[in-house]
């Protein structure tokens, strides 16, 4: 039986972990590779790196981070942030990432999804969508709208329609990030996640709002998500991967157990 995945995302700026991540020990200070290694050893299923480097001429640093992670961390990982062209995607994949994460650039240019999917296969293309709850309207029947620029720019696109379109264009997975829930740590947007999971046939990763293993359980069952993305609950050391996994597993979810440490 396929297990539900526990995925964590790391924000990286200029090759260092962003401030949203608490540094646990001295070895770990700001180094995304060390942090990724730690989570890998503790039994995390998958990682996402978001490059939030502001200036594009410093993006090469991220490529070095990706190569380094790929040589030490033997679980799948994706890279997103600032990927605008197939060439951008190709560089992170060649550096050793399994998947690319496209978001705003795909909203502005949906052809990016199909081109990347043709070039690298659907399994390598993750469509990340930032979604705002706006209430049902003529253009937005589901009541959930696609936004870009970190939630500041509404696009007049219905989230469920965009999810379907993304699947048709060749995305292999969807990350559904609720702007409303993001940062609240009060739980994922269950209605949204479920609506999208029911509308597509590709895996859905729920994002935004996860604060406890109970929230994760909720979105993996009621929300019908295939995976739950977590950030601060892990980065601040409030829960270990083992605790999260045994919580989910004890409640009957199929989970890849954290198990023995590895080197």
């Amino acid at each position: 039986m396929l297990t539900k995945r526990v995925i964590s995302c790391l924000d990286v700026r200029d090759g260092k972990l962003a401030k949203s991540i608490k540094f646990v020990d001295t070895k770990d200070i700001g180094d995304p590779v060390e942090r990724a290694r730690k989570y890998y050893q503790e039994g995390l299923d998958e990682l996402v790196f978001y490059d939030i480097t502001a200036s594009s001429d410093r993006r090469d640093i991220m490529i070095d981070v990706v190569s380094e992670v790929a040589s030490q961390v033997f679980i799948p990982f994706s890279v997103g942030g600032g990927l605008r062209t197939v060439e951008d995607c190709s560089r992170v994949l060649l550096a050793g990432a399994e998947k690319v994460n496209v978001n705003s650039a795909a909203v502005k240019n949906p052809g990016l999804i199909s081109e990347a999917s043709r070039a690298f296969g659907a399994q390598a293309v993750v469509l990340s969508m930032d979604v705002l709850r706006v209430g049902p309207g003529p253009e937005i029947p589901s009541g959930y709208e696609i936004v870009i620029n970190g939630g500041r720019t509404p696009m007049g696109i219905d989230a469920v329609a965009w999810a379907r379109r993304g699947e048709d264009l060749g995305a292999g997975e969807l990350v559904v990030n609720s702007i409303d829930a993001d940062g609240t740590r009060e739980g994922y947007e269950i209605t949204l996640t479920r609506m999208i999971a029911d509308a597509v046939r590709i895996p859905v990763i729920a994002s935004g709002g996860g604060g406890t293993p109970g929230h994760m359980f909720e979105v993996l069952t009621e929300g019908r998500a295939d995976a739950a993305l977590i950030a601060s609950m892990l980065h601040y050391g409030e829960y270990t991967i083992a605790e999260i996994k045994s919580y989910l597993s004890n409640r009957g979810l199929p989970i890849r157990k954290a198990g023995m440490p590895v080197t």
């Binding site: 396929l2 297990t3 299923d45 046939r201 590709i202 895996p203 295939d226």
Partner: peptide, 9 residues
């Protein structure tokens, strides 16, 4: 069940 079969099994 979704296709592709993607994840840990």
């Amino acid at each position: 069940l979704k296709i592709p079969h993607m994840g840990w099994n």
